[in-house]
C-alpha cells in the first residue's frame, strides 16, 4: 500500500507502481467532460487556465447534491475514456495525476510515461464511501456547469489503485480490449 499527499513533492510519484493500492490525501481538483473542453478551448486561444496543474491532480467526477451536514454528496469516479482526447494536452501543461475509472487510450498511456505522471482508478460506484473521504469542497470555476463545475476537494484516506505508473507500466485492465 502506498500513500500520496497532494500536491506531491518531487520524486514522490516514482515510488508508486502499477497495481499498488494508493491512499490519497490533501488537495484534489475535480473536472470532467465540460471542464476539459473549456481548458482545451482556453489553451487553443493561448489563454491561461484558471488553475495551476503543477503538483496537482484531477479527479473525473460529478457529485450528487450534498445532504444536510455533508460537504458533498455521493462522489465516485466517472469513466475516464471520455477525457482521453484531452489528457495528453493536460499532461503537457503540467498535470501529473489523473483519477477516474476504466481503461485509457494508448496515447494517454504514452503521455503518462513521457511526463512521468500517474493514472489512478477510484472504486466505481462507491460514491457514499468517497463522500466520507471529503473534508472540504469549494467551487473554483464554472459554477454554471452544476455537477460538472471545476471543484477543489480536501480529501483524507481516499482509496485508489494505480493503473498506469510514472514509468509507463500498466495493469492489463488499463487498456481497451
Amino acid at each position: 500500500m502506498a500513500f500520496l499527499h497532494l500536491p506531491f513533492e518531487e520524486k514522490e510519484l516514482e515510488k508508486i507502481n502499477a497495481g499498488d493500492e494508493v491512499i490519497l490525501s490533501g488537495k484534489l481538483y475535480v473536472g470532467r467532460d465540460q471542464v476539459h473542453l473549456r481548458f482545451k478551448e482556453l489553451l487553443d486561444k493561448g489563454e491561461k487556465l484558471p488553475i495551476d496543474f503543477m503538483g496537482n491532480g484531477i479527479y473525473y467526477m460529478g457529485p450528487s447534491p450534498a445532504p444536510d451536514g455533508y460537504e458533498i454528496g455521493a462522489c465516485g469516479p466517472t469513466t475516464s475514456q471520455r477525457m482521453d482526447p484531452f489528457s495528453p494536452l493536460m499532461l503537457s501543461k503540467g498535470l501529473r495525476v489523473m483519477v477516474g475509472k476504466g481503461p485509457r487510450a494508448k496515447a494517454v498511456i504514452e503521455a503518462v510515461k513521457d511526463y512521468h505522471g500517474l493514472y489512478l482508478q477510484a472504486f466505481g460506484g462507491c460514491g457514499a464511501l468517497y463522500a466520507s473521504c471529503v473534508r472540504k469542497k469549494s467551487v473554483v470555476a464554472y459554477p454554471e456547469l452544476g455537477p460538472e463545475a471545476l471543484l477543489l476537494l480536501e480529501i483524507e484516506n481516499f482509496p485508489t489503485i494505480c493503473m498506469i505508473d510514472s514509468r509507463g507500466n500498466y495493469l492489463p485492465s488499463a487498456v481497451f480490449v
Binding site: M61, P67, D68, G125, G127, A128, L129, P147
Partner: peptide
C-alpha cells in the same frame, strides 16, 4: 463499505442515481 456508509447516512450509493 460503500453499502454500509449509504445505508447508515442520507448519501446515495452512487452519484449516478
Amino acid at each position: 463499505q460503500n453499502i454500509e456508509v449509504s445505508s447508515s447516512t442520507t448519501l446515495p450509493l452512487c452519484q449516478d442515481c
